[in-house]
Simulated assay, not measured.
Amino acid sequence: MTVEGSLINTVGFLLGKLGQQANGQFADRLAPLGLRPRHCAVLEFLSGGPRAQLELAKAVGVTASVVVDMLDELEKLGAVRRVRDTADRRGGGGGGGPRPPARGRAPRRESGGGDAQRR
């Protein structure tokens, strides 16, 4: 197979390479803030208000245990805070759950985006 006929010249391959490069540059911009690209979907979803952890997992497309890990990381950075839902004795549903902190607007602004954590 010649280079002209190989997979490296297909649109799918080139788009994949472009995605890898864009993700790497995005990660580099987030790193000084202690954030990773995987945190951004959670922060964006939370910008609409508090959500249950299971709801976040479904929305982001990961398991609940992955969301717990991401929220632990974001909580350490001060980007989210967990609030217990007093109506749900399990502590994970209803109006409780993670939410942006009152001062939590800086990470997205500093990373070059808009004001992600609207209240």
Rank of each mutant, 00 (worst) to 15 (best):
R119E: 05
P101I: 07
R119K: 04
V42A: 11
A102M: 05
P98S: 15
R118A: 08
V68K: 15
R109A: 11
E73F: 05
F13I: 05
G49N: 07
V60S: 00
D115Q: 05
E44K: 07
F26Q: 08
F45D: 10
V42S: 02
G12A: 12
L77C: 10
D85P: 13
H39P: 02
A59D: 01
R118W: 06
L33T: 07
D72G: 11
Q53T: 15
R99C: 04
L77H: 15
E110V: 11
P98F: 15
L18N: 13
C40R: 05
R109I: 14
G48I: 03
D115A: 08
G93H: 05
L77Y: 05
V66S: 14
V3F: 04
F26M: 10
R29G: 09
G48P: 00
L15K: 15
V80C: 12
V3M: 10
Q20W: 04
A102F: 07
L30H: 03
G24S: 10
A106Y: 09
V62M: 07
R105H: 14
A64G: 09
R29V: 07
A102W: 03
R82E: 03
G93D: 01
D72V: 07
F13N: 12
L15S: 15
C40I: 14
L15G: 03
L46N: 01
A59V: 03
G49H: 04
G12N: 06
R103F: 09
V11M: 05
G91N: 04
A116E: 08
P98N: 14
S111C: 13
E110G: 03
V3L: 11
A64T: 04
V80K: 08
S65F: 04
P32D: 08
V66I: 11
A79V: 08
R29K: 13
A41C: 02
R82W: 06
D28M: 12
A116M: 14
M70Y: 12
L30M: 10
N9V: 06
E4I: 09
F45A: 10
F13H: 15
L33Y: 03
L54F: 07
R89K: 15
A116V: 09
G61A: 00
A87R: 14
Q20S: 11
A27H: 02
G78A: 07
A27K: 14
P37H: 12
E75L: 02
P107F: 11
G104A: 10
G16N: 07
G95Y: 04
L7I: 10
A79H: 11
A57W: 06
G104L: 02
V66Y: 02
R36T: 08
D88H: 02
D28A: 15
L7G: 12
Q53V: 11
E55F: 07
R103M: 06
A64D: 08
P50R: 13
G61K: 01
V62G: 01
A41L: 13
G96S: 03
G112V: 13
G104Q: 05
L54Q: 06
Q20E: 12
D88Y: 02
L71E: 12
V80Q: 14
Q21W: 05
P37R: 11
P98C: 14
M1S: 10
K17P: 00
G95D: 04
F26G: 02
T10F: 05
N9S: 08
G113R: 13
L15V: 13
